[in-house]
Amino acid sequence: MLVDRINQAARKVPTWTLYIVSMIPVPVLLYMAQTGGLGREPVKALEHELGEIALQLVIVGLCISPLRKFAGVNLIKFRRAIGVVAFIYVVLHLLVWAVLDVQSLDRVVADIIKRPYITIGMAAFVLMIPLAFTSNNMSVRWLGPVWRKLHLLTYPIAILSSVHFIWLSKGFQLEPLVYLTVILGLLALRVPALVKKVAA
């Protein structure tokens, strides 16, 4: 069976390889930004690419448990790493925005306060911080059942991130709406289980 073969292969792949593979786009994007591969104005392009990869990783992370539940594919051991890498991309996205794009601490602060789409993007980032720092075995043991509850923050993070994307787009654009729809779909898959838990 294909599922068994995937699960067997996944067992053999060490988690650290995921960090290596998923960070490959960083040097590639930096190289492209310096050599014209990101177009004539690389700052916005780089900022956008990093943000979009982070959002895609959040979505990949949200796929892990439905994959196990509905398809029997077990990739759970990669889930924490995916979340951490998503966080790294958000940090890079923020750095490019603040340092290369806005170029002024005053204006960064003003934008966070004054511009709602930046406020919610920032909120998503802040919510990610405790998750990134508790994505290790020690924290899982230490927090016990609280860990699972804490990491439910992934759901509002996903929604906030995709709304951030929709909000910053000009006009009525398809791509950011696709992201939100996928995220809402993945969250909807979890509703029956949540309802059962609450009812029990």
Binding site: R40, L46, Q103
Partner: peptide, 11 residues
């Protein structure tokens, strides 16, 4: 941002 200045151009 003046287009064509690259990654480190000042606004």
């Amino acid at each position: 941002r003046v287009v064509g200045g690259g990654l480190f151009a000042k606004r």
